[in-house]
Structures are given as structure tokens and as C-alpha cells.
């Protein structure tokens, strides 16, 4: 159990997907104009990461690896299968959001289908493979990574809302300022790399 908490904290803070690896930047920058939409997208990402990570783990272990169902090394199919799982999950989330929260659906716009191509999701699955996690560790890694991404997008959305009242030079307003702010937040998160993960055991 301590091991799982350790992975959760490590993937949420020390190896934050958004601010340490800069994954999922497209939707991170485009949807962070208000805290409300950022909150919704963040929750959707936690949900999609938390589900796709164990599913991809099952596919990778029981279908694609050498000891799997087909008894041969099919890892060259990894990209296509992982992305198929992610795309179908996102389509499911899209249907659910459209049904239960039409305002959020229209606020997220094109960025809901673009969760599919949010690099944080596919990147997370590829990291999970390269770190050789087992099933429960992959669940913890998925939820932790999603939570870290959620924190990052809500934080930048809050900063950008306050930024409206500052005198930013006109060409830098909006997108340019978001880039500079993310760079500064990234530097701040580099400070967390000093945390010793073993301390949580």
C-alpha cells in the first residue's frame, strides 16, 4: 500500500506530466482561460487516464507481450492498440458529458475530442510500459498522473484569470503570457525533484 501511495505522490508532484514532462500542452494552454472549464477538463483527464492506464496494461501484458495470448512479440502494434483504447474511451466520455452537462460540453468544444490526442494520455501509457509497473501500480500511476495534470491546469487557469487585471504588453496578452507563466511554474516544480520518494514508505 505504501508503495502505491508513493507512486501516486511521485506521479502527481515530482514527475508531474504537465509541468515536468510538458505533456498535454495543447489543451492545457487552450482550455485554461477560466477555472470552470479547466476544472471540467481536468476531471475528464483524471477519469480517462485512470481507466485507460489499467486497460492498456492488460492489453500490453496479455495480448502484446511474448508470454501473452498469442505467444509472440507483438509490441510493434502497441501504438495502434493503445490509441484505439484511448479513442474509444474518449468517445464514451464525450457521450456522457453531452448527456449530463451540455454547458460543459459546449464550453470544452473541440478540446473534448482532442483529449484523445492529449499526449499526457498516450505518454502516460508509454511511461507505464517503460517503468514496468504491475496492475495496481498502473492504476495508482494513472490516477496520480491525472491528478497532477488537473492541479496544473487549475493553477494556471486561476493565474490567468487574475492576469486579466494586469497591464501586460498587447502582443504578449493571452497566449504569450500563458507560455511565460507555464515556464515559471515548470521552474517551480523542478524544485520538487529534491523530494525523496522513499520518505513516504
Amino acid at each position: 500500500m505504501g508503495d502505491l501511495i508513493n507512486i501516486f505522490i511521485k506521479s502527481a508532484f515530482i514527475e508531474n506530466l504537465a509541468l515536468s514532462y510538458f505533456l498535454g500542452m495543447c489543451s492545457y494552454l487552450a482550455v485554461s482561460k477560466s477555472v470552470k472549464t479547466a476544472f471540467g477538463l481536468g476531471l475528464a483527464v483524471i477519469f480517462v487516464l485512470g481507466i485507460t492506464m489499467p486497460m492498456n496494461w492488460i492489453i500490453n501484458t496479455y495480448l502484446l507481450s511474448e508470454g501473452g495470448l498469442f505467444g509472440m512479440d507483438l509490441t510493434f502494434l502497441r501504438f495502434i492498440l493503445f490509441i484505439a483504447v484511448i479513442a474509444s474511451m474518449v468517445q464514451l466520455v464525450e457521450m456522457v458529458v453531452e448527456k449530463f452537462s451540455p454547458e460543459l460540453y459546449s464550453a470544452l468544444g473541440i478540446f473534448l475530442p482532442l483529449i484523445t490526442v492529449n499526449c499526457a494520455i498516450l505518454g502516460g501509457s508509454l511511461f507505464m510500459v517503460s517503468k514496468e509497473y504491475n496492475f495496481s501500480q498502473s492504476v495508482a500511476f494513472g490516477l496520480g498522473g491525472g491528478f497532477g495534470w488537473f492541479l496544473a491546469i487549475v493553477a494556471i487557469a486561476a493565474i490567468r484569470e487574475k492576469m486579466k487585471y494586469s497591464a501586460v504588453p498587447a502582443p504578449l496578452r493571452g497566449l504569450g503570457m500563458a507560455f511565460l507563466l507555464t515556464g515559471l511554474m515548470g521552474m517551480a516544480f523542478m524544485g520538487l525533484m529534491g523530494i525523496d520518494p522513499a520518505a513516504f514508505n
Partner: peptide, 26 residues
């Protein structure tokens, strides 16, 4: 060489681009 610098450099590229092409200003 570190990641944050890419953010700063792209931010400055955007600044220069928008200062030069006024109709893109947000």
C-alpha cells in the same frame, strides 16, 4: 537545455510575431 526555457523562447517568439503582425493581437 532544460524544459522551461522552451516555454520562455516560444513565449518570446509569440511576442515578436504578434508585435510584427498586429492583427493577431489577443
Amino acid at each position: 537545455v532544460l524544459f522551461p526555457s522552451a516555454m520562455f523562447v516560444i513565449g518570446i517568439v509569440i511576442w515578436v510575431h504578434r508585435a510584427w503582425n498586429k492583427k493577431l493581437v489577443d
